[in-house]
Simulated assay, not measured.
Amino acid sequence: MPDITTRLHADATPTAPALVLRPWSPADAAGLAVLRGDEALRRWTSFSVEDVPSAARWLREQRRGWDEGHRFAFAVEEVDPSGTGGPPAGHVVLKDVAPGAGSAEVGYWTVARARGRGIAPRALRALTDWAFTTFAGDGLTRLGLRHQGDNTASCRVAGKSGYELAAVLSPNPPAHPVQGHLHVRHRAATPR
């Protein structure tokens, strides 16, 4: 079972700094509360932080997932050449992990300043590689990624991360009020 000190890395590219993926911490509450005005985040995700107290609740939920061993959420930070990270540029999560289950789900979001810069695919690939390595002994061979069907940016991120479109999903209110897409990646698959 991974512990709360787990850190993942994505190397720098010629046009983007390295990334560090680290578990969220209580110190992130104020920075999360600032995101309440991010309309794209509200439109495409279930992120429901309104203020510092609701951010603290959200962070406790992320910690509880680690403690219970079924949800592993990471803050994504860009790291400068000195190794110093900045405020979180995004979030990736491995969820619905269960011993003996062959599949789980991933999710992600990025803050406005990080969109369109290749951060989401790099972070998602790092999370995916970690998930398949860490949970191989538990039988994990398949990861799914769901998003709203009209979210073309998420389709691009999925493709860049080696997740193939597997199904168009019918609306299922209230959790999924509009048509969605399911992308899938298998452990043996190689990202593009």
Rank of each mutant, 00 (worst) to 15 (best):
P2K: 03
P2N: 05
T5G: 09
T5K: 06
T6E: 12
L8Y: 03
L8S: 10
H9V: 06
A10H: 01
A10P: 02
A10Q: 01
D11L: 10
T13L: 09
P14S: 10
A18E: 10
R22Q: 12
P23L: 00
P23N: 03
S25N: 05
S25Y: 00
P26S: 12
P26A: 14
A27M: 02
D28E: 07
A29L: 00
A29W: 00
G31C: 04
G31H: 08
L32A: 01
L32V: 03
A33P: 10
A33L: 06
L35C: 07
G37Q: 10
G37C: 11
G37S: 08
D38N: 09
E39G: 08
A40K: 06
R42T: 03
R43S: 13
R43P: 06
T45E: 07
T45G: 06
S46K: 10
S48F: 07
V49H: 06
P53G: 06
P53L: 08
S54H: 06
A56M: 08
R57G: 11
W58L: 12
R60M: 13
Q62F: 06
Q62L: 08
R64Y: 13
R64N: 13
R64H: 14
G65W: 05
D67Q: 15
H70T: 13
R71A: 14
A73Q: 12
F74R: 02
A75Y: 09
V76D: 07
V76F: 06
V76R: 01
V79N: 03
V79Q: 07
V79H: 01
P81D: 01
S82T: 15
G83S: 05
T84N: 12
G86V: 07
G86H: 04
A89S: 15
H91W: 09
H91C: 14
V92F: 03
V92G: 11
V92Q: 08
V93Y: 00
L94M: 04
K95V: 10
K95S: 14
D96K: 15
D96W: 13
V97Q: 00
V97W: 03
P99A: 06
A101Q: 11
G102E: 09
A104M: 06
A104E: 02
Y108L: 13
Y108I: 10
Y108S: 09
T110C: 14
A112M: 03
A114E: 00
R115I: 05
R115N: 07
R115K: 10
R117M: 04
G118N: 07
G118A: 09
G118Y: 01
I119S: 02
I119L: 07
A120M: 05
P121S: 10
R125A: 11
A126V: 03
T128H: 05
W130V: 08
F132V: 12
T134I: 07
F135H: 14
G137R: 03
D138Y: 00
G139C: 00
L140N: 02
R142C: 07
G144Q: 12
L145V: 01
L145K: 01
R146N: 13
H147A: 09
G149R: 13
A153V: 11
S154W: 00
R156A: 15
V157G: 02
V157S: 02
A158L: 02
S161F: 04
E164W: 10
A166N: 02
L169I: 11
L169V: 11
S170P: 07
N172G: 10
P173N: 11
P173V: 09
P174V: 09
A175V: 15
A175S: 13
H176T: 04
V178I: 12
V178M: 02
Q179F: 08
G180W: 01
L182Q: 11
R185V: 08
A189H: 15
P191D: 05
